[in-house]
């Protein structure tokens, strides 16, 4: 059974994980709905050409995909480097 001390430490770790998860979720929602709202309400802006053949719309669309990669990478990186070892330490504490 876990002790009160490891429970507090665990609560703290769980809170940190949710904070990061929720912040990253909000970032993704903001990015994607930013894009969708531009599609819905500002078509001329997205039609503006950055260079011949490259409109802001196509550029932003590709950027949304690339930024999805980056946010998932940030999360996985954080979880592998900080979350897993902390969780492991707490769990081995449990079994003592």
């Amino acid at each position: 059974m876990s002790t009160a001390g490891t429970d507090a430490a665990f609560q703290d770790l769980a809170r940190r994980r949710w904070r990061i998860a929720i912040v990253l979720t909000i970032v993704m929602v903001a990015l994607y709905f930013g894009f969708i709202l531009l599609v819905a309400y500002n078509k001329p802006l997205l039609g503006r050409l950055v260079s011949p053949g490259l409109s802001l719309g196509v550029l932003f669309g590709a950027l949304v995909i690339v930024l999805s990669w980056i946010t998932t990478w940030i999360y996985v990186r954080w979880a592998n480097v900080h979350y897993d070892p902390a969780l492991h330490a707490l769990r081995s504490g449990d079994h003592k």
Binding site: L24, T25, V29, Y32, I36, T72, Y75
Partner: peptide, 14 residues
């Protein structure tokens, strides 16, 4: 193309 990808980070985080 974009909409069908952005669900994946949500699946991962939550």
């Amino acid at each position: 193309s974009t909409g069908w990808l952005v669900g994946w980070p949500v699946v991962l985080f939550l």
